[in-house]
């Protein structure tokens, strides 16, 4: 059996661009999913019953659907229902954001709940509004506690972006598969893909470990 690793080097431009897309998807998804998750979590905790139920419904729906199904659904079904078709990248981003927002909302909700009631009461006793209590007192403390969880969600997300390859978003997985299909260099391209994901993912995972040590809660 002969291997031809030069195929990887020949396509370095495409692979580099695709890696950039993978990072872009990860960063953009988190940039959307973190603030949206705060809002969803706050709605679940403080809003009137119907709004709270809607927020809960959203979280439970997207937390319990396979991400790949959401990706397909956003790509094929949403245009039929709404008549609006977004480009693949935007569709993939939307699907990832819907999914990760639901997860992050649960993380934020748990974090907010973990801050004992006396903290809110002390802030209320000063005359703060509910929103001020959340923004100034509860969220900063909750964020410190959930940072390790958000960081591991980030690492998972970095790998899960590969799922949007099924709707032809030109990220790392899609580009590798395309090159594989054109060159028939299956083993080389799959190995290259694994090496790239691992080399990029490992430092991020190590960073998460460091964050978990650094932000261990002391009270």
């Amino acid at each position: 059996m002969t291997f031809d690793w030069s195929v990887v080097w020949q396509h370095r431009g495409i692979l580099a661009a695709a890696t950039g897309t993978t990072f872009l998807l990860t960063i953009a998804t988190m940039a959307i999913a973190v603030p949206c998750a705060v809002v969803v979590a706050a709605l679940r905790l403080y809003a009137a019953a119907p709004v709270r139920a809607a927020a809960t419904g959203y979280v439970e729906l997207f937390r319990n659907l396979p991400l790949i199904l959401v990706v397909y659904w956003a790509f094929y079904v949403v245009p039929i229902l709404t008549g609006v078709g977004l480009p693949p990248l935007a569709t993939g981003l939307a699907a990832l954001a819907l999914n990760v927002t639901a997860y992050n909302a649960e993380t934020f909700r748990a974090g907010i709940n973990s801050i004992r009631r006396g903290q809110s009461e002390a802030a209320l006793a000063l005359g703060m509004s509910r929103v001020q209590v959340l923004r100034r007192i509860v969220l900063p403390q909750a964020l410190r506690r959930i940072l390790p969880v958000l960081a591991s969600t980030w690492v998972s997300l970095f790998k899960d972006t590969s799922l949007v390859s099924v709707i032809a978003v030109g990220e790392l997985a899609y580009a590798s598969m395309q090159i594989r299909a054109q060159t028939f260099r299956v083993l080389e391209m799959l190995t290259a893909m694994a090496v790239i994901y691992w080399l990029l993912g490992y430092p991020q995972a190590k960073l998460v470990d460091w964050i978990q040590r650094r932000y261990a809660v002391t009270e």
């Binding site: 006396g118 903290q119 009461e121 002390a122 006793a125 007192i137 900063p140 403390q141 410190r144 009270e219």
Partner: peptide, 13 residues
């Protein structure tokens, strides 16, 4: 009104 709590409730951050 100022309030002082048994468990202090200083903001730890």
């Amino acid at each position: 009104m100022g309030m002082v709590f048994q468990s202090f409730e200083l903001f730890p951050h």
